[in-house]
Simulated scan of single mutants.
Amino acid sequence: MTVRFGIIGLGGIASRFAGVLKNAEGTSLAAVASRDMERSEAFAKEYNAGRAYDNYDALLQDDEVDIVYVALTHNFHYDIIKKCILQGKAVLCEKPFVTTQRDADELIELAKEKNVLLMEAMWSRCIPAFRKAREWVAGGLIGKPQLVQAAFCFHIPFDAEHRLFNPELAGGSLYDAGVYPIEFATGILGENPVEVSGIAHKCTTGVDDFTVINLGFASGALASLACGLNARVSQDAIVYGTDGKVVVYNFLGAHKTERYNENGELLETFEEEFEDGFIYEIQHISELYRNKKIESEYIPLKDTSACAGIFDKLIEKWQ
């Protein structure tokens, strides 16, 4: 069965997705949509899409689209996801899914009610190295987890109109970058936090441009996370346990993970090479669709809701 994708929002991330989709076995790009027909047609030509539209509703009404990949800026996610669900279209939405837990929970309940597949595009959780690290931690191979450290910070010149700095486009490092270490921590531990705190530095537009996040879990594990727009920071994530540690190198798109004992001696290495980690996300949601699933076991909707709840708590503290 060929799974047919439609893409809404044709920016840089959509181009990356469409490029990987070209080489994903058992899939096709049925249609693309933006608010500009010239742009849609150019994108369709470059990535071999079946049809191009200049409005989103037309794509949603296309019977030959099975899964809609939502690649719009964060502020548009809620409205378009809701339309997709009501139209009966499976949804793969770029992170962050939405920016409030209320919106997340409403959409999740609607998808369950309509029996529609819904998944946040947290592609890093689908990568084999992450899955192996998760297996080691869940299997007790480093003892009881004590501390998770992860950060996604990069440097981009300040521009008040850029989506990352523009509050009207749900800008800020927390929404765009913080979602990765948060969902790394919840995914690797297999639980969501009971305590949330953090400190943010805000730029002149009022959004956070650097943030430190602390999470506490019912198991006793803690997480120390960071996200930012002003400096590059190591993207190697570490999970420390009572009997050792797991290192996930470049955790956003990890090719390698290693397990050490409590004395720092290397016990096990797992490595898998790939060109672009989006391929695993595409394969995963395609298989879910073929099997008539409405939720991913890799990116369960409870984690998507919990992440939005963390946003709520932090934003409330910073106001």
Rank of each mutant, 00 (worst) to 15 (best):
N166W: 10
A177D: 14
G12Q: 11
P128G: 05
K144R: 14
D159E: 13
E258K: 03
V239K: 02
A221E: 11
T99G: 00
T100K: 13
K313G: 00
K256T: 08
M1K: 08
H284Y: 12
V247D: 09
G178Y: 06
A237T: 00
E168G: 03
G206W: 06
E113M: 14
S296H: 09
E64H: 13
A52D: 12
F5K: 10
I182G: 09
V20M: 05
F5P: 12
A254P: 07
E268C: 02
E106Q: 12
A150Y: 01
Y53Q: 11
P181G: 10
I294A: 08
I213M: 12
V194F: 00
E258C: 09
F43I: 04
I80W: 04
G190Y: 01
R102C: 00
L21V: 06
G9E: 09
P181E: 09
H77I: 04
E262Q: 09
N214H: 12
K89Y: 07
A129H: 01
A226W: 02
G178F: 06
F184I: 12
S124F: 13
E262L: 08
I182Q: 05
L169F: 13
I108V: 14
T257E: 00
V116D: 07
C227L: 03
Y53A: 14
G253Q: 07
F165D: 10
G253I: 01
D303S: 05
A42C: 06
C153R: 13
R259C: 03
I294T: 15
Q61D: 15
P193C: 02
L92D: 09
A58C: 09
D36P: 05
R125V: 03
S197N: 12
D66V: 08
A221F: 12
Q87S: 15
C227G: 04
G171Y: 07
A30P: 07
A200V: 10
Q235N: 05
D303G: 01
F278D: 12
I188A: 06
K82T: 06
P181A: 11
E258N: 00
Q149Y: 00
E64A: 10
S305T: 03
G206N: 10
I299D: 03
H74V: 14
Y298H: 08
Q235G: 09
A104R: 02
F43M: 13
E271G: 00
N48E: 14
D276F: 04
A254C: 08
G190E: 07
I8H: 08
S286H: 09
Y280F: 15
N23R: 06
A177L: 15
F43V: 06
E287K: 15
T27Q: 14
A129V: 01
F274M: 04
L21I: 04
Y280C: 11
G228Q: 10
L29C: 06
I85H: 03
Y78D: 02
E297G: 05
P96D: 06
A150R: 02
S28H: 05
D79A: 15
P157K: 08
D159V: 08
D79R: 10
R102W: 00
L86T: 08
D303Y: 11
L164P: 00
V68I: 15
F43D: 11
P167Q: 04
E161T: 06
L225R: 01
I238M: 07
T27W: 11
I199V: 14
F5A: 11
A121V: 00
V20T: 12
A33M: 11
A151E: 12
I294G: 05
N214F: 07
C93M: 04
I310H: 00
V70M: 07
C126S: 11
P96M: 07
T186V: 13
F154L: 14
S124L: 13
F270T: 01
N263T: 03
C203W: 06
